[in-house]
Design a protein around this nucleic acid. Structure first.
Lengths: 204, 204, 204, 204
DNA sequence: TATGAATGAGGGTTCATTCAT
DNA sequence: TATGAATGAACCCTCATTCAT
């Protein structure tokens, strides 16, 4: 972490996660983030262009770790099915381990203006690339339908996983999220597959 | 439409769709909506509690039509697979027919504060109820996996469809959305199904 | 009452007393007065020029009764001392009998703009004329200091009585006001009197 | 002055006196005060909670000086009569020396809402305490009636002086105010005194 | 780098008043 | 007279950002 420099950069990012999660993006004052980070208001602007940039940067920082971890975990795995399952599992686990980040990612991040949505997508590319890799490999292996529209399939996978995560946050994380992963990846695999796979079940 | 009263209510709603789509929720001034609707600023507040209420009400108005239309269309259809396909198709078609509404629904609506997200979900219940109905019927008919977690399945369906729609809006509607419906519903059906369905493919 | 016309005029005046007393002048909406009076908002403007005019008219209406009653009571009395005592007593009694009017008179009336203060003084002239009459008569009778500056003396009397009344209202009318009248009028009479003051320096 | 901090605090207070005097409280825009003080609008809110707080703070600042000066002057004086005379004189002189403050004190301050009236009274306590001190001392010395109700007597004194001052402001300060002080204090002393009043019928 | 006092643009909302009916 | 829906001017305050130190 800390692509740019100094411990203050990280402190501000971490403070922003907490403050955004607590108050939402629009209700979070920059001065509150500064306070939480233990720096002066003006210092924020030595590290970030503006308030939006804090959100973007935070997302970039956290997302790159997020993606790196997933990539690392699935790199050891052979089967496509298992790779997808672990991907979803890791996605959920990481959200469960950082509730503040989960709130920001699933809810607050979408409160920024439309223009920012595009930047968020930019950041998401690393993650979406992972999915694309899975799909291509699956098609090559003859596991998935050769006629698969990768872009659409990727959107379906991401949309499904993201929606489940969002609902979990909106239900105030009252239930465990990670255990849902295998069911979801099973359904997705089935949906993408060429034919019948009798017994996909189980996180086994 | 016009649950409340008068042509001005509708005029304001319609103006809001246009203005929100153009500028985003946070950048839309109430006075601009008034201007677009051809009423005085103060008139807005005879029909709506505040700016947020315009957004919510707009969503309620439009969403109830949206759901009613889908419900009407699928009521004539027997097969579950076809029902889902038509649901997705209608979902997409309606967004394509009202690009401003599509922008607001897929992007701007999510910019409101967290608290509003909950209200949006309230409004979505009608739509989600349709999905649940489909799922229950499908399970009863032995088409879907009897172990299906309906809540999760519903989230996957909605998440997938919603994400595809959002991507289409963010790509500035450069391609046709409706034709994607059958592929998507096919995948979803396959994912939800109990076992092998040799030839699920499409309207083709 | 009802110098102008119709029962609605009176209804509006009476409603205004209640509403102004409850919320203060600036926090009282014209529509609330209309509601309380059982008329439409627009009807108010058939009887009153504007919101301020309601306050002024109310004060005129009520004040003329106020002054008439005092005048009537003191007309039967011979002694100047007694006249002043009864004047103060009546002043207090009438406020005690109409707590809403007391609040409006002592507090809310002063919340209007400066320009209105002048109009209020116009209305007060009837009352101040009574005081002047007392003073002139007292001087003629040799009771009061012949060097008395009537204007100042009148201000002292009115100021004293008014301040006691205002304090009583601000103390939320927790004590009886009328019993204070005789002490006050005694002091005032003493202060105005010719009699011995061993060594009153000053302009002598 | 400047209980809080910086020259801007004082500048804003002084600007407020001028602006409130010119336009009245309700017609004074905060931005006008900022302009007059030579600061940005937002700066006001670094020093004051809101518009009302400016008025209150202004009154507190000015009133404490006001009271301190009177206290200082009368501390050198022996006789009660003289003390009261000087108190009234100082009261008037200070108003004459700061006409803008006089307008605000006598007229605009009373335009605020009822709730604020209570705060104003809080601020006035210093001044009223001076009067109480005088009264107690006068009673101890046997100069004033031992049966004096101090609270009422204080209200009479303050009410009389205040009313004379208010009239002077409303008459646009066309005449000299200070010269009236000795007559007024004479009357008040006489009114409060023990001495003979042949036949003052009490409430008894 | 770091500070934090100062800036000033920006807009949702109220409500007295009007006027077509 | 009476209505009450419609008007639209008016303004306090917030807070992201700057900049002198």
């Amino acid at each position: 972490m800390g692509r740019k420099k100094g411990p203050k950069y990280d402190a501000i990012i971490d403070a922003a996660v907490v403050v955004f999660a607590q108050n939402g993006y629009h209700n979070s004052k920059v001065s509150k983030i500064a306070q939480e980070a233990g720096v002066a208001d003006g210092t924020i602007y030595l590290y970030f262009k503006n308030k939006e940039d804090i959100l973007i940067s935070m997302f970039e920082e956290k997302m790159s770790i997020f993606v790196d971890r997933i990539q690392h975990e699935i790199s050891h795995v052979e089967s496509i099915e298992k790779k997808l399952e672990i991907m979803v599992e890791m996605h959920f686990t990481q959200l469960e381990l950082d509730p503040d980040l989960a709130i920001v990612t699933q809810l607050e991040l979408r409160q920024s203006n439309t223009n920012m949505r595009y930047k968020v997508n930019e950041v998401l590319k690393g993650y979406l690339g992972l999915i694309d890799g899975l799909l291509e490999e699956g098609m090559k292996q003859g596991l998935f339908d050769p006629g698969l529209n990768i872009r659409i399939a990727r959107q379906i996978i991401f949309g499904a996983v993201d929606e489940v995560a969002t609902n979990w946050v909106m239900k105030e994380r009252k239930y465990a999220l990670t255990p849902l992963a295998s069911d979801i990846s099973d359904m997705l695999i089935k949906g993408l597959s060429l034919k019948s796979q009798p017994e996909l079940k189980g996180k086994g």
